[in-house]
């Protein structure tokens, strides 16, 4: 009798521990389109998946320095699209991104990239002054400008809607998404930058993504 009781308790403890261990750690999906590609490796034809990724870019930052994907290749980064005199969603979006920046300030694994969609007004010096007033004090957060074709083309790759529209206050229409990009240029998350719950989700998922690099 006593033996079977011990057995029962033993089984329960085992089940509990096993249940605990079987909890797999969450990994983030790769967002965007995916295409099958066939290639020949060691004489064998294999099929692989080509995931959507951010293309090569070359943009001018707030210090008038040309920056490329290379700057972001050693860790993860969060990208968005804005303009400095945006009267609508940008201040809220940047206020929220600033919270993430302040949390990871000094942590070189995380960078920030804000693209201006106002290619007429937002020169590097305007971006520099904006960054300082926002409270950005190091180069972890880059503010960039480029030709309309370059920036608007990139926004498509980030799956962010951008459009010049004189009927919109400020003259430009765009969505306020924050995109989480990994070191392989894959989009791992998209979050509404104006929504507090989405910002919390971004913070949670950023921590999950960083675990991939530990």
């Amino acid at each position: 009798m006593r033996k079977s009781l011990f057995l029962l308790v033993g089984v329960c403890v085992l089940a509990y521990v096993a249940g605990c261990n079987s909890k797999t750690s969450k990994t983030l999906p790769i967002l965007g389109s995916r295409d099958p590609i066939t290639k020949v490796v060691d004489g064998k034809t294999i099929t692989d998946t080509l995931y959507h990724s951010i293309p090569d870019f070359q943009l001018l930052n707030q210090d008038s320095v040309l920056i490329t994907n290379e700057l972001f290749s050693k860790g993860v980064y969060i990208a968005n699209f804005f303009f400095t005199h945006c009267p609508s969603i940008c201040p809220t979006m940047q206020r929220n991104l600033l919270k993430v920046y302040e949390k990871y300030k000094g942590d070189e694994r995380v960078k920030f990239l804000s693209h201006s969609i106002d290619f007429r007004h937002d020169s590097p010096s305007v971006l520099k002054s904006y960054a300082e007033k926002l409270g950005v004090t190091n180069d972890q957060w880059q503010f960039v400008t480029g030709s309309k074709a370059a920036v608007y083309g990139l926004s498509d790759s980030y799956m962010v809607y951008t459009k010049e529209d004189s009927n919109i206050p400020g003259g430009y229409d765009h969505s306020g998404y924050l995109l989480l990009i990994d070191s392989n240029r894959h989009i791992r998350g998209a979050y509404d930058g104006t929504n507090d719950e989405q910002i919390q989700l971004l913070l949670d998922e950023l921590a999950i993504l960083l675990k991939e690099y530990e």
Partner: peptide, 10 residues
């Protein structure tokens, strides 16, 4: 800001 906190010196 929702709490009247402003944003940096912007």
């Amino acid at each position: 800001g929702a709490k009247g906190e402003g944003l940096g010196t912007l």
